[in-house]
């Protein structure tokens, strides 16, 4: 990476694929993913670090991609909601959200799902209280959360320890 130039070259892994890009330092990770890579599954809700709609995994940790510069993700491995399915099959967490009706408009869902992926990786069998704590960085304006908690619980029960 060269310093001092107006754009910097970054290379990272996104959903298992190596990608490179030239970005201004101020380019947010969320814009890099949505605008340069056309991965629009990652939503921008509040754009002020509060709602969690933009949550992705960076090296396995949930982060708000509207509150990170793409240059900070240089060299890392990013997973977005598009990276969860396998061979056209939804992941357990995605299945669980469908099964338990864990969404209405769906705007918060990609972020909720990525936070759930992180939560279940850290704690494969969370209690209801731990689930609510685990998704406390994600806001939903539709569901009232009950079905989301049920979906996360269902994902935990059906995952057999596989955090995906």
């Amino acid at each position: 990476m060269s310093e001092g130039s107006r754009t910097l070259r970054i290379s990272l892994t996104v959903n298992g694929k190596k990608v490179e890009g030239d970005v201004e330092p101020r380019t947010l990770l969320t814009h890099f993913l949505r605008d340069k890579l056309s991965l629009t599954g990652t939503h921008i809700g509040c754009d002020t670090s509060n709602c969690g709609a933009c949550t992705v995994l960076m090296d396995g940790y949930s982060v708000k991609s509207c509150t990170m510069f793409a240059v900070q993700a240089d060299g890392s491995s990013i997973t977005t909601v598009e990276g969860l399915e396998r061979d056209g099959k939804l992941s357990r967490i995605q299945e669980a959200f469908r099964e338990k009706h864990g969404l209405q408009c769906g705007f918060c869902t990609p972020g909720m799902i990525m936070s759930t992926a992180f939560l279940l990786k850290e704690n494969p069998h969370p209690s209801d209280e731990e689930i609510r704590w685990g998704i406390s960085g994600n806001l939903c304006r539709c569901t009232g959360y009950s079905n989301i908690v049920a979906a996360v619980k269902y994902a935990a029960e059906t995952s057999g320890g596989d955090s995906n």
Partner: peptide, 9 residues
């Protein structure tokens, strides 16, 4: 402190 995503960074 904040929420899980905030604590991760």
């Amino acid at each position: 402190i904040g929420d899980p995503q905030v604590r991760n960074r």
